[in-house]
């Protein structure tokens, strides 16, 4: 069995010596460079996030602070049923019609936002993993 394997390996090794690389088509580098030039970035327009990191930290702190504050208030008032009720929104358009958001719609929107927040890091992680070695 091992002899068979060695024989096949030797035969293919010998055979592959005659094989050669395919040549990339004429003008291949030029085509790639034309595409690359389109979105090449010079240091002067290097990527800079719109919202700096420290602002994100402030937002996170504010968010955590709010949760803590509401939690403390909740334990003080001891009113569990009220805590999970989302505030009701209503917009007055041109003083003639009132646009009310139902509780169902509000919950759906909140869950949609949570879902997007979870999916974005997952998708990013997936592509990072594919490109990283």
């Amino acid at each position: 069995m091992e002899q068979d394997e060695k024989r096949i390996t030797d035969l293919i090794n010998k055979l592959m010596e005659s094989d050669n690389l395919e040549k990339a088509p004429e003008g291949f580098t030029h085509s790639v460079m034309t595409e690359v030039e389109k979105f090449s970035k010079s240091p002067s327009i290097a990527y800079k996030p719109l919202i700096p990191k420290y602002v994100w930290w402030l937002i996170i702190l504010f968010f955590l602070g709010s949760i803590t504050y509401f939690n403390l208030n909740r334990s003080n008032t001891n009113n569990d049923s009220q805590f999970f009720v989302l505030p009701e929104f209503s917009f007055r358009l041109f003083d003639t019609s009132i646009l009310d958001f139902s509780a169902g719609l509000m919950y759906a929107m909140v869950f949609l936002v949570i879902m997007i927040c979870v999916q974005v890091p997952l998708v990013k992680q997936y592509y990072d993993k594919r490109l990283a070695v």
Binding site: K23, F28, T29
Partner: peptide, 12 residues
Amino acid sequence: SILVDRYKDLVY
């Protein structure tokens, strides 16, 4: 373009 020239044949 140097990098492309170096690896284009094997990638192709």
